[in-house]
């Protein structure tokens, strides 16, 4: 008998009588001011939030906050930072990226997470390997909680997707919180009015 058969048989023999799945209805959270709840949570988890009018404002912000020797990669239509970083490049070549500017599908007010799938990352490793991560998100794309988040994801198909909530962090040394464990040291979210 293979390990597979052995395991499946043993489990089938030992599993208890069928127990149905429960309903998953939860209190609808306050839909009123999702943007300010989202912004408050982001600040609490160590992110920086800017409210801007549009993409052009973000371009301006990045230009005035980076120096020429920084490698910046953007997938939000800034010609000077457009690089082909798709599957034909080695992810290792992204190790010197200082700033990555990406779009997210939506944000989650209760925990400050944003949802990105592979297409929005350009390359899977980019949002993890860059030193600073910046996300552009229309204000209208904020959902209340994780139940709403998965409703929104629905049956979408993706190779890889991630909720990202704030900069990479650790508190493994005597519970002192340090930002920038292995991934980005900062995370900035631009909330766009349009």
């Amino acid at each position: 008998m293979t390990d597979r058969e052995q395991i499946i048989n043993a489990i089938a023999a030992n599993q208890p009588a069928f127990s149905p799945l429960p309903a998953t209805h939860f209190t609808a959270e306050d839909q009123e001011d999702l943007a300010s709840q989202f912004a408050d949570t982001l600040t609490a988890i160590g992110s920086v939030v800017f409210v801007v009018d549009n993409l052009a404002d973000i371009h301006q912000h990045i230009k005035s906050n980076t120096s020429a020797d920084h490698r910046v990669i953007s997938t939000i239509g800034m010609v000077e930072y457009n690089e082909d970083i798709g599957t034909n490049i080695s992810p290792h070549s992204l190790q010197n990226v200082e700033i990555a500017v990406l779009k997210a599908h939506f944000g989650v007010a209760e925990n400050g997470a944003v949802w990105l799938t592979e297409e929005l990352m350009g390359n899977r490793v980019l949002p993890f390997i860059c030193q600073h991560l910046m996300i552009a998100l229309p204000i209208k794309d904020i959902v209340a909680n994780m139940h709403k988040a998965y409703e929104r994801i629905g049956n979408d198909s993706y190779g890889f997707g991630a909720f990202i909530a704030g900069p990479s962090k650790t508190a493994d040394i005597e519970q002192s919180l340090v930002m920038g464990a292995h991934g980005p040291k900062t995370m900035t979210i631009f909330l766009m009015r349009s």
């Binding site: 949570t41 909680n145 994780m146 998965y150 890889f160 997707g161 991630a162 909720f163 909530a165």
Partner: peptide, 26 residues
């Protein structure tokens, strides 16, 4: 997949009091 909504809300709040881990990678 939708059951992740339940477990991801519970996991880190129970663990460290964070609302979610920094990365929940699918």
């Amino acid at each position: 997949r939708k059951h992740l909504g339940v477990f991801l809300r519970l996991l880190t709040r129970s663990a460290t009091g964070q609302p979610i881990t920094t990365y929940s990678s699918h």
